[in-house]
Amino acid sequence: MADRRKKISIRESIRIPSRYLLLLLSLLCILLMVLTFNIRGFASPFETVANYMIVPFQKGVSSIGEILIRKDADRRELEEIRAENRALKEENKLLQEEQTVLKEQEYELMELRKLLQIEEAYPEYEMTGARIIARDNSNWYHSFLIGKGENDGLLVDMNVLSENGLIGRLTAVGPDWARVSTIIDDNMNVSGTVLSTSDILMVSGDLKLYESGTISYGHLNDTRGRVKIGDKVVTSNISEKYLPGILIGYIASIENDANNLTKSGELIPATDFSHLNNVLVVMGKKQLPSEE
């Protein structure tokens, strides 16, 4: 009995009290935050690790489904009564399944053809298609992951488009995945140009406007009042991260700012952000003189 008590007390003493562990891990978190904030590329080894977790994301869900279907089929074979009937039903089902697969492929083909059209619309940029493999879980951000990465030649800050217009840019790239931050994210800003008048404005995502499906813009310097509702807005030549001439959206409202010099309002994005499946990544970055 005494022996046992001794054993327990040793175990207790080895165990780190949870409050110290809490302190330790919290400090580690804060340290990590500070390091990632200050050192560029600090997170890249972690991103390589994440690569091994992305592959199951892509394949796991579908393979679980497959296993379930196979088990179901096995059980069917065991039932001998009305075997013939069942076999016929099975065949019928298979044919239907095949049909749905074909339908799906047809749909995909259509979608890819649409993407091809945009590729023709922006012929000067080399692009690659990619599939969305995971979405951000929270109600705060609107970023997602795509199934291509460094191994396919992607780099941070490459622009991402849909068949209709600008989606955003890559903010993190792993070996086989990349994170896309969208222009509707609250802290994303894009410098744009009104196509008809060549006036520069600043497009920024806004948490409040997510629901209405619009994004806001500001700093529009339009003293002559020529910009109209419905005008096209494209990325501007002076944008640091975005290639020029990519469609962002259409102006939905115009209001005078308090300073009476600039105007602001809302913009309807050209891309339907809630129904994205495939995206296009532009395989080239804007050339800028280096900062150093």
Binding site: L22, S26, L28, C29, I30, L32, A50, M53, I54, D136
Partner: peptide, 17 residues
Amino acid sequence: DVLFGNLLGFYALIYLL
């Protein structure tokens, strides 16, 4: 954090707490 966060350790801290 690695997948979605802008700052490594941000989600880790809150979920830890």
